[in-house]
Design a protein around this nucleic acid. Structure first.
Lengths: 147, 147
DNA sequence: TGATTATATTCGATTAATCGAATATAATAC
DNA sequence: GTATTATATTCGATTAATCGAATATAATCA
């Protein structure tokens, strides 16, 4: 059956595609980590505790949906959200389901993670020359343990 | 695999459930018809052109998701949206995908539909004599053709 | 060059969603 | 009561999503 109604022929389809991309808990978690800035795959691994390949699969899907882009820097591949307005959808959804946590404060994922190997999380172990220099981490005093 | 991350354990799941309910073009179309008021199943049939059982299946799913409720009145079963904030999610999604149509004006679905048999669409044929005659619709000046 | 590190991709089995067809139910009319 | 109308539900086949395992690639280091 054609899912096109006689009216607004294609916006239902496009909208449904967006929700399909958002429909998975792991992808929502990934977008949560990326909310305040780009991060590499190993950071997502450390932050979320998922397998690397599993994360990569979901990243692929989000990329195909046009929600994220990647940028390679040396060993690491950094992902960032290309359409920040996606968080307007997410926040409206969170309000709808009754989530009242503060989403306007900076994410706990912005701090270095102990299990992450990327230069962003390990600024001191910059070997010889620093080809992939990352700005010093803003070590907030009360860095929360992720696990 | 558990899809729970060590953080926000269940909100990703609940949010994903919401998107799952919104993920289908037919369900988005249904919610579009119900945006400005309750309507019966035959109205949805007439407005969208889908089979009755098909619409009923999607209504069931939306009901299970807690987004709509029904109210029986004689022959007809009227559905309404229980969480109007769902349109905040939908509107944010429409803006994200670049839809600029005016959604604040009253829906074209609020007008009587020629192929709908419900009393709402046939106010004068209230009683016994021919129960399913569709009176000429109140053609509002700029009422767009549905087909 | 080969080894290592970070990440991407493919494959396949399992589970879930879709959707047509047929049937069931519940209210009303006669 | 039976017939009719509006709607709901079940069944089954097809398609799509999920996710672990294995493997591939691409940059870097020695």
């Amino acid at each position: 059956m054609s899912t096109k109604t006689p009216n607004k022929p294609c916006n239902y389809e496009n909208q449904a595609r967006l929700y399909k991309a958002l429909m998975h808990p792991a992808r929502l978690a990934i977008l949560d980590v990326l909310r305040y800035g780009e991060h590499c795959v190993c950071h997502l691994e450390a932050a979320l505790g998922y397998r690397q390949a599993y994360i990569s699969q979901h990243l692929m899907l989000l990329r195909d949906a046009g929600l994220i882009e990647d940028r390679r820097d040396g060993w690491n591949n950094y992902y960032r959200v290309t359409k920040p307005d996606v968080y307007k959808v997410i926040d409206a959804a969170l309000r709808l389901i009754g989530d009242n946590s503060d989403r306007d404060s900076i994410s706990r994922f912005e701090n270095p993670l102990p299990n992450c190997t990327c230069p962003k999380c390990n600024p001191d172990t910059q070997t010889n020359s620093d080809p992939h220099v990352c700005e010093p981490p803003i070590t907030s005093p009360g860095k929360p343990s992720i696990v």
